[in-house]
């Protein structure tokens, strides 16, 4: 391995700090008293800060986090199951009409989310899926599935044909080729798609609000609305909710990233 200069780390930390400044600012606001929120010039650190936002949030919001996690992971699973085979097919198996499917996938992503929500509302009300976590997972997956198919197809198009032919010559069926060759070498694609499927589901508000507002299990994005009254918004509690909500997810991301990095440097997979 090459020498790893420290100045790279220094630049990296600097760039990350700039990128995360708005996040810091959010934390700052979450700790600020209402009377200081519009102070000019603003306090760079929460002078005379308050933990009120957090005490309110921790008392009320924790149950929502579990639901968000469940919805996020469910969406990831559903997205992968649907998108990976389709991406493989479009990239390597050249189905007739594949171009049309590609196009439809793009059109699908352009349908305004509110129209999608209206459609789901009409369907769910008939199927009785309203206010259920499963309904929400299904709806959230529509954000990620077309993306997943396109990303998988872009990543899988780089798998050498020789690799697949070798498998065929070894007598592997198409399912086995897919399961034991295509998926393992598409690790980066899987991670990318999972990541975004999770993030989208985690931060979705529109579907949750339209389809799960009366549900007993609600995601954190709806929890925030406990602080947005008809005439009044409690900004430090809103920001505190966002901070509390992003901590477990951030930990999850860092862990996932470590796992990925470990896998790559161990050289178990080369694609």
């Amino acid at each position: 391995m090459k020498h790893r200069p420290a100045w790279l780390t220094a630049i990296g930390v600097g760039v990350t700090a700039v990128m995360l400044f708005p996040v810091y600012w959010m934390v700052n606001v979450s700790l600020t008293q209402t009377s200081n929120m519009r102070k000019s010039p603003p306090n760079l650190i929460p002078v005379d800060g308050t933990l009120d936002g957090y005490t309110v949030v921790l008392r009320q919001q924790l149950p929502y986090l579990g639901t968000s996690l469940l919805v996020g992971l469910g969406t990831v699973a559903l997205t992968l199951v649907l998108a990976a085979p389709a991406g493989y097919s479009l990239a390597k198996l050249r189905p007739r009409g594949g171009g049309v499917v590609n196009l439809l996938l793009l059109v699908a992503q352009m349908i305004p989310a509110i129209v999608m929500a209206m459609g789901f509302y009409a369907i769910y009300i008939k199927l009785g899926l309203l206010d259920s976590v499963w309904g929400l997972i299904l709806a959230d997956s529509t954000i990620a599935v077309p993306f997943g198919v396109l990303i998988f197809s872009a990543f899988m198009s780089r798998i050498p044909d020789e690799l697949l032919q070798a498998a065929r010559i070894d007598g592997a069926g198409s399912l086995r080729t897919f399961g034991s060759i295509v998926l393992p070498v598409s690790r980066n694609g899987i991670i990318t798609v999972s990541l975004f499927a999770f993030l989208w589901a985690w931060s979705d508000f529109l579907f949750a609000n339209t389809l799960d507002n009366g549900g007993s299990l609600q995601p954190i994005t709806l929890g925030i609305y406990a602080y947005i009254g008809n005439n009044n918004q409690q900004w430090n509690a809103i920001m505190a909710t966002a901070v509390v909500a992003s901590v477990p997810a951030a930990v999850l991301l860092v862990l996932a990233q470590r796992y990925v990095a470990a896998g790559v440097t161990a050289g178990a997979v080369k694609d």
């Binding site: 009120d52 009254g229 009044n232 509690a237």
Partner: peptide, 8 residues
């Protein structure tokens, strides 16, 4: 607390 967010 009360001053800021009485109603809530």
């Amino acid at each position: 607390k009360a001053r800021a967010v009485c109603a809530a």
